[in-house]
C-alpha cells in the first residue's frame, strides 16, 4: 500500500512538472520555498509555477489530452454530466485537489486542506479532497493499455520541457525527468488491476 501511495505521488508529481509548460510566469509560487532543485535559484515548485501553475497544468492535461482520448475520457463522464452526480467532484474541484496534492508532496502546500468550493457542482458544492489511494484504487479499474496511455501523456507532456540547464519557469532538467521516470518505473503492478480490460473504458466496480 505504501508503495502504491508513493507511486501515486510520483505520478502526480510527474504530471505536475508539466505544469511549467502551462505557466508563462514564475510569479505564482505562493511564497513557498518548495523543493530546491539542482538547476539554479528557482526551486522545483517555483519552476512548476506554484499553485496557479500546477492548477493550470492539471487543467490543461485533463482538457487537451484526457478529454480528447476515446478511452480515457470515459473516466470523466461524471464531470461533464449536468448536474454532476452526487458524490462526484467537479473538474474544477479535481484540479484544485491535484494541485494541492502535488504542492504537499513538494512540501509547499497542505493536503487535503479546506473543502474546495464550486457552486456549479450543485450536489457537492464543497468537496473535501480525498485520500488518493482510498478514493481511486477500488474505483479506477485501470487496465494495462490505459495505464500506458496515461503515462505516455505524462512523458510527452514533460519531454518538451527538458533543457540542458533548467533555470527558469517552464524548464526541467534531464536529471529531474529521469528521477520522475524512475519513480514511475515499477509502479504499474501497483496501479493496474489485473482483472481490468487492457483498454478502457472506465468500469465502475
Amino acid at each position: 500500500m505504501r508503495m502504491f501511495k508513493l507511486s501515486v505521488i510520483g505520478m502526480t508529481a510527474a504530471l505536475a512538472l508539466s505544469a511549467v509548460g502551462c505557466s508563462s510566469s514564475d510569479s505564482g509560487s505562493s511564497g513557498s520555498s518548495g523543493t530546491t532543485g539542482d538547476s539554479g535559484t528557482l526551486s522545483l515548485y517555483e519552476r512548476l509555477g506554484g499553485k496557479s501553475g500546477l492548477e493550470s497544468f492539471v487543467q490543461s492535461v485533463v482538457e487537451t489530452k484526457i478529454l480528447t482520448d476515446a478511452d480515457l475520457k470515459t473516466f470523466f463522464f461524471a464531470q461533464v454530466a449536468t448536474p454532476i452526480p452526487a458524490g462526484s467532484p467537479s473538474a474544477k474541484q479535481i484540479v484544485v485537489c491535484f494541485a494541492r496534492f502535488v504542492g504537499t508532496a513538494l512540501q509547499a502546500d497542505t493536503y487535503p486542506g479546506a473543502p474546495v468550493n464550486d457552486p456549479a457542482n450543485t450536489n457537492n458544492p464543497n468537496h473535501t479532497c480525498r485520500d488518493m489511494v482510498k478514493s481511486h484504487r477500488p474505483f479506477l479499474n485501470i487496465g494495462t493499455a490505459n495505464f500506458d496511455k496515461f503515462i505516455g501523456y505524462v512523458a510527452t507532456s514533460l519531454m518538451p520541457l527538458v533543457k540542458p540547464t533548467a533555470t527558469k519557469a517552464g524548464e526541467i532538467t534531464q536529471a529531474e525527468f529521469e528521477a520522475l521516470a524512475a519513480a514511475l518505473n515499477g509502479t504499474k503492478g501497483d496501479i493496474v488491476n489485473p482483472g481490468a480490460p487492457a483498454s478502457g473504458p472506465f468500469v465502475k466496480p
Binding site: 487543467q59 490543461s60 482538457e63 487537451t64 478529454l67 480528447t68 475520457k73 470515459t74 470523466f76 463522464f77 461524471a78 461533464v80 454530466a81 452526480p85 473504458p201 472506465f202 468500469v203 465502475k204
Partner: peptide, 21 residues
C-alpha cells in the same frame, strides 16, 4: 454502468472542452 455509459451529449461535451482548450 451509468457512469461508463455516457450520453452522446456527454461525449460531445468532453470533446468540446478539449477542442476549446
Amino acid at each position: 454502468c451509468p457512469i461508463t455509459h455516457g450520453t452522446p451529449a456527454q461525449i460531445d461535451r468532453a470533446h468540446a472542452i478539449g477542442g476549446a482548450a
